[in-house]
């Protein structure tokens, strides 16, 4: 589905990475590893067409990505290292907004179950401001289920999470791939996720 061919990125005359190749097919999980500043986030952003590469190309369903961008965006969920939840609003408000924005058909009971698993069900009426960073991160990951898209692109999804939540996330990744989804994510941490390909930057 996604093919990255000889991708290189330079910024301010400094090479971030060069000649990266990867191929993400149905049911695959790709992990990006590397030190701080090695360009993991930059690579993820360039796959999303948010950063223009210096050279190389990215294809989506056999066509150049920038010629097929709207269709690509309809199939992809991106979880950045920043959390996009609106801090002034409650957890419930954020969920409602995401459901409306992404035209999600997920049922109320489904969301309640996931919130229970993530131990966020007690915070529904609380403002996001009052949650810890780990809890905000868990809320952010809920967006994967709300958006319900085939391709997940995630920047450090396991950071700031406790062991129990990491296990839930790892299980969710495997379930998603079993349903013909695909995932690219970056991580510093060792993981038990059964990855198809490891890209070292």
């Amino acid at each position: 589905m996604i093919l990255v061919k000889d991708l290189s990125i330079e910024r301010s005359n400094k090479k971030i990475f060069e000649n990266v190749n990867l191929s993400l097919g149905t049911g695959k999980i790709i992990i990006l590893k590397g030190e701080n500043g090695s360009g993991k986030t930059t690579l993820l952003k360039s796959i999303l067409n948010l950063i223009e590469p210096t050279s190389g190309s990215i294809y989506w369903k056999g066509k150049l990505l920038n010629k097929n961008l709207n269709d690509f965006y309809n199939h992809v969920t991106y979880i950045a290292d920043k959390t996009t939840s609106l801090r002034k609003l409650t957890v419930q408000d954020n969920i409602n907004i995401w459901k409306k924005i992404f035209l999600s058909k997920i049922g109320k009971s489904n969301i309640e179950n996931i919130l229970k698993i993530l131990k966020l069900d007690f915070y529904l009426g609380q403002k996001v401001n009052s949650l810890s960073f780990g809890e905000i991160k868990k809320l952010e990951l809920l967006r994967l289920i709300i958006e319900n898209k085939k391709i997940w692109i995630l920047d450090e999804p396991l950071s700031n999470l406790d062991k129990e939540t990491i296990n839930v996330v790892e299980q969710t990744f495997e379930d998603h791939c079993a349903k013909e989804g695909s995932i690219i994510f970056s991580s510093h941490q060792d993981t038990v996720i059964n990855v198809t390909e490891e890209v070292i930057l």
Partner: peptide, 13 residues
Amino acid sequence: FENGNLLLMRLNG
């Protein structure tokens, strides 16, 4: 811009 919602809007089409 700071909380990444601009990015989210872009990815929402």
